[in-house]
Structure formats: structure tokens, C-alpha cells
Design a protein around this nucleic acid. Structure first.
Length: 563
RNA sequence: CGGGGCGUGGCGCAGCCUGGUAGCGCACCCGGCUGGGGGCCGGGCGGUCGCAGGUUCAAAUCCUGCCGCCCCGACCA
């Protein structure tokens, strides 16, 4: 059913809110879709809630093809989280009831789903199963940001699969991939499924669904040629081959006064920066570790953390002098006494220039294996223009993206501590093999705005627009076109087209501007210019093409726009 | 947690440096006009200047502390 704008809560703003940076944040606040209640806490006004409900409807339709919807509490006993050891997570909200009993606010629902699976599932005959819900999550985010993109409370579709073994999990995982693709396609998003990090805890595999957008917090690596796509955190690449000078039989020390940066060094010695080794001394668990990447590369923090299996920090100048006997800028892997040397794979072959561990000197012709020993890992950050690790020929580009969904093979990480087991054909007990699958509704909403807007406002994908059509009735009370508008409203209602009728007593310009800001796919203009010959103008929001149609054909014209 | 910025009517902002009557635009209310791109005229309502303390004859303005919000980074199970 359509609604009348007069009497509807439609608080559009003429100016951008002062504190909004991201496009989606600006347009959703200006358009009267959302309002802030506190840091990272957003209220959905009628317009915004309609969009969320449409997204939820798509999620339900698609999820219902593979899963059963349930609903579990957000307020949960802290003891449940003690069993999985997750009660110490800093982002977990903790509270007490009046008797002092401890509770948490769920940041995700693995514990609750596994708790029930442990009690209700007993036999292999009952597997596999997939359960899902659309429920609030609470996370004490250290830094909420970008409007509804990262909030402390948010709605999430979360699903959990229960299988008897890894093959079963693989099947459940693949079913989710298919369903997720359909969901994001139906929501009108441009998206990529990418390999993602399984985190410090390990895990059997994970993928993320990424919607490219400059406001996104994640970075995505894409190939120009094949379908390789990965989160920057795990992306691989083929770096360009360095131009090596003539090889030396042993390293040769050369003076390099004042050259403490790669650019300065490469220029002074006339070598390719890619033929130098950049030394990044870090401290991990109290020991100095030398991390090496090529001079033209950047050390990727998360990859380094993974290689070290622990947190680390940059070494201080004092620690560097102590371990290497030279100032920062002149250190390298030959000599010195770091506890470990880890090096990027690209340094495995060839001879590089590195610091000589003598202030103001570097070594030419330093070769891994011959001159120093190192553990090799993927440590470098992928950059634009490098070659694709899959097809070898394509070039890679790095883009920002919003993580709209993720899928994760949990294995028995939760079923073991919570004793969610089943009995197989032989009566043997096994832990249930689980997967978890999330989609952020607000992130879909924000990503849609980020990907589809113009200088006038939002251009909603038809599938999640708050209204199918926005009818602007020009003129006031006694004008004859008002009757025409009412007739059209009834026709659209009968035809199942959801229309917002702007019958407010404002000037036409202001109302056209609001229509564009709000972004319904079709705009119907009823004025005396056209009403006289029983026609109206129907304009598409996307591209703003306009046609004049007879009043009797409005519903059909709008349907055509919605296609 | 580190760095930066901002807090003055519902919204966007000026005033602060150089202390002395709290101001502008929009929105809102009343009346009228207007009616295909944020229109016009007239009349109104609305602010303990984030909070607390201090300096001063006098504080939005200077000082101290706190709180809140935004941005960058760290973090993001």
C-alpha cells in the first residue's frame, strides 16, 4: 500500500550533516532514512526501516531454500561464553542482573546455536541441518564509523550449518555460496567473493563477499584478466622481476653516507629499488626479529603477524643499535644478532643490496642461503600493477570494499567445547562439524547507496527501494489535478505498486529535490500541464529519462521502470 | 589506545584571537500570495553558548578538568 507524505515521518535535510563523511552516511541521514542515537547506535526511521525490511524479505526468501529460521536471545548467560573461552573478548558487552548473575550481549551466536544443537541433535540421521536468524548483534566497537557501516549494534542474518563430517560441511558451504550470490544479485549490488583470512585461530577456510566502494574499510585485490579476487590480507601476486646488476661471488661493502631510505639508496648506487632488501626490525615476544621485504614492497602487518604467530611492534632505534650495531637505515641480514630473520618469498632468489650493519654502509650482492639464513613467508602487501598469481598474465588492482557477508568453516571449534555431538551408524560419538555464515543488513543498505547514487541523491536498486514510485502532486487544494492524483494512487494500490504520494504543501522544486534524494526508481509528476489531457509524466530515477503517459497507463509505465 | 578536529536555537554556521546587548541562513508557527525545480511578502516562537570549576567589576570569548561527537591510525573471533 502506498502512503501519503503529509503525516509521514520524512525529515529530509537540505544540508549535509556536519559529521558525515561517507556518501551513504550523508545521503541516508539527509534523506531521512536513519538518525544517530549515540556513537555507533542508529535508529531506522520509517523510510530506512522499509529498506531494511525489503532486504530482510530477500534474505528470508533465499535462506528458506536451504535453512530454517529461528530466533535466539541477544542477552545470554556469561557462563555459556566461558565454556568456549570467548568471555574475555574486549568487544563483548558484559552486564549483571539484579542478583549479580553475569550476562553478556551476544556479538554473534555460535554459542547459542551450538548449545541448542548439542541438546536437540543426537543422530547422524538428523544431519545435515542449517538454522538461521535475523537478529541484533552487539559489539563494543573501539571505533564505530561511517554512519551505519560499522556500528555497535546491528542487524545480522546469521546462519549455522551442522554436518557429520568435512564433506558435509563442504556441501553446506557451497549451498551458502550459491544462496549468497543470489541474495547480493537480487539486492542490486556489485560484489566479489574473495578468499579471506581465517584469523589467528586457524579454521578450515573462509570467504568474504565484498562490495566495492571508496567508503569500505577492507581492501580487495582483483585481476584484470581472470576471476582471481582476494582480500588484501591474504592476496598473493607475482612481483615484477628486478633488474639485477652483475652477480658477485661474495657481498661487497660500499659507503652510502646519508642514504637511509630505499629511494635515496637506489639513486645513490644506481640500482633498481626492487633489487634492494628493506630491513624492518620488529620486536615479538621480547625478541628482535628482522623482517625483510624487497625495497619496492611494503611489509603487510597481518601477514607478518601470521608468520610470527604472535603480535609484534617496530623495534626502537636503541634496540636496533643493540642488535645490529648500526643505525636504522644501515641494517641488514648479514651479521647482526636478531633472534630470527623472516623474509618475503620474493627475496629467495637473486642478489640484493642490503644494509651492512655498519652505519653509512651497504652490501652489494647479498644472496639468501649463501650469505644469510631466513625463514621465507608471504610478507608483502600486494600493490597495483603486479601480476596475477592465478592466470600469470593479468595485472592486479587494489580497491576498497565493504564486507557485506562472510562464510566460515568452523569445524569443531564450538561443537567440541559445548559437547555438540552425534552418534554414527556404529554408535560412535563425534563432534558435529559446523560452519557459520553472516550477512549485515545495514551494510547491504549502505553499499547499495555507495554504489548507486548521483549528485541529487540515492538511486535505489528497485528490489530494495523504500517505494516503487514517488508521486509529486503540483498545485494545492482545489486544483483539478489532485483528483487525478487520487485516481492514480488507487490504481497503483490495486496494481501492487507501492507509491509515496507527496501531497505536502511545499513548492514543487523542494519536492522534486526530495524525490531525487529519497531515490524511488520511478517519479510520477501530476500537474495541471498534463492533467488537462489526462496524462502524467513518468521519470526514471536512474538516468532521469522522462515520458508522458496516459493516466490509465501509469501502473504499466512504473512496472516498466522497475524491470 | 595514539594523533587531529569540532561542540553556540531543530539543521548548517558566524562570533572566540583582541572579555562588555548572543547573531545569520534554513527549518518551524500565524496570515496572504505562488504552484513543473529547494518561490515571495508580512508577523512570530525558540538558545542556562557541551558540563564543572577558576580568573575577572564582567566570560560564548581567557585558564584547568571532565563529557560527547567526527576523522586518521591501532583493533575488528
Amino acid at each position: 500500500m502506498g502512503v501519503r507524505a503529509s503525516g509521514y515521518l520524512l525529515p529530509t535535510l537540505k544540508d549535509d550533516p556536519a559529521d558525515a563523511e561517507a556518501i551513504s552516511h550523508r545521503l541516508l541521514v539527509r534523506g531521512g532514512f536513519v538518525r544517530i542515537l549515540g556513537s555507533g547506535l542508529y535508529t531506522y526511521l520509517p523510510l530506512g526501516w522499509r529498506v531494511m525490511q525489503r532486504i530482510a524479505a530477500i534474505l528470508r526468501e533465499e535462506m528458506d531454500t536451504i535453512a530454517m529460521e529461528v530466533s535466539m536471545p541477544v542477552l545470554q548467560p556469561a557462563s555459556l561464553w566461558q565454556e568456549t573461552g570467548r568471555d574475555g573478548i574486549p568487544e563483548l558487552f558484559k552486564l549483571e542482573d539484579n542478583s549479580g548473575k553475569r550476562y553478556v550481549l551476544a556479538m554473534t551466536h555460535e554459542e547459542a546455536f551450538t548449545y541448542h544443537a548439542a541438546r536437540e541433535i543426537r543422530s547422524y540421521r538428523e544431519l545435515p541441518q542449517i538454522w538461521y536468524q535475523i537478529q541484533i548483534k552487539e559489539r563494543d566497537e573501539p571505533r564505530p564509523r561511517s554512519g551505519i557501516l560499522r556500528t555497535r549494534e546491528f542487524l545480522m542474518k546469521d546462519a549455522y550449518s551442522f554436518d557429520r563430517d568435512e564433506d558435509g560441511l563442504d556441501a553446506s558451504y557451497r549451498r551458502h555460496i550459491d544462496v549468497y550470490r543470489r541474495i547480493f544479485e537480487r539486492c542490486g549490488l556489485q560484489f566479489w567473493m574473495v578468499e579471506s583470512d581465517t584469523g589467528m585461530m586457524g579454521g578450515l577456510g573462509a570467504h568474504e563477499f565484498m562490495a566495492p566502494s571508496p567508503s569500505g574499510e577492507d581492501r580487495l585485490v582483483l585481476c584484470s584478466n581472470c576471476d582471481y579476487a582476494a582480500n588484501l590480507e591474504v592476496a598473493r601476486s607475482i612481483p615484477r622481476p628486478p633488474q639485477f646488476p652483475e652477480p658477485l661471488d661474495e657481498p661487497r661493502e660500499v659507503p652510502t653516507p646519508g642514504a637511509t631510505t630505499i629511494e635515496g639508496l637506489a639513486e645513490m648506487l644506481g640500482v633498481d629499488p626492487a633489487a634492494t632488501a628493506k630491513a624492518m626490525p620488529v620486536v615479538a615476544e621480547g625478541e628482535v626479529v628482522l623482517a625483510l621485504v624487497r625495497g619496492d614492497q611494503r611489509l603487510h602487518e597481518m601477514k607478518t603477524r601470521k608468520a610470527l604467530q604472535t603480535e609484534f611492534r617496530p623495534a626502537t632505534p636503541e634496540e636496533i643499535r643493540e642488535s645490529f650495531g648500526a643505525d636504522p637505515g644501515s641494517i641488514g641480514p648479514v651479521g647482526g644478532r636478531p633472534a630470527r630473520v623472516i623474509a618475503d618469498d620474493s627475496l629467495r632468489d637473486g642478489q640484493f643490496v642490503s644494509g651492512a650493519n655498519r652505519t653509512g654502509y651497504h652490501l652489494l650482492g647479498v644472496q639468501a642461503g649463501r650469505d644469510f639464513k631466513a625463514e621465507f613467508h608471504d610478507l608483502r602487501e600486494v600493490t597495483d600493477g603486479e601480476h596475477c598469481p592465478e592466470c600469470q598474465t593479468g595485472t592486479l588492482r587494489v580497491e576498497r570494499a565493504i564486507e557485506v557477508g562472510n562464510i566460515f568453516k568452523l569445524g569443531t571449534k564450538y561443537s567440541e567445547p559445548l559437547r555438540a555431538t552425534y552418534l554414527d551408524e556404529g554408535g560412535n560419538e563425534h563432534p558435529i562439524v559446523m560452519g557459520s555464515y553472516g550477512i549485515g543488513l545495514a551494510r547491504i543498505m549502505a553499499a547499495a547507496v555507495e554504489q548507486s547514487h548521483d549528485e541529487h541523491g540515492i538511486v535505489w536498486p528497485a528490489s530494495i527501494a523504500p517505494f516503487d514510485a514517488h508521486m509529486v502532486v503540483i498545485g494545492g487544494g482545489g486544483d483539478p489535478q489532485v483528483e487525478t492524483a487520487v485516481a492514480i494512487e488507487h490504481e497503483l494500490d490495486a496494481d501492487g505498486v507501492c507509491v509515496l504520494v507527496d501531497d505536502r504543501d511545499a513548492g514543487p522544486g523542494a519536492r522534486f529535490a526530495d524525490a531525487e534524494l529519497i531515490g524511488a526508481p520511478a517519479r510520477i509528476t501530476v500537474g495541471k500541464r498534463t492533467a488537462a489531457d489526462s496524462t502524467v509524466d513518468v521519470q526514471t530515477r536512474r538516468g532521469r529519462t522522462q515520458e508522458t503517459v496516459p493516466v490509465s497507463g501509469v501502473a504499466a509505465a512504473v512496472r516498466k521502470v522497475l524491470e
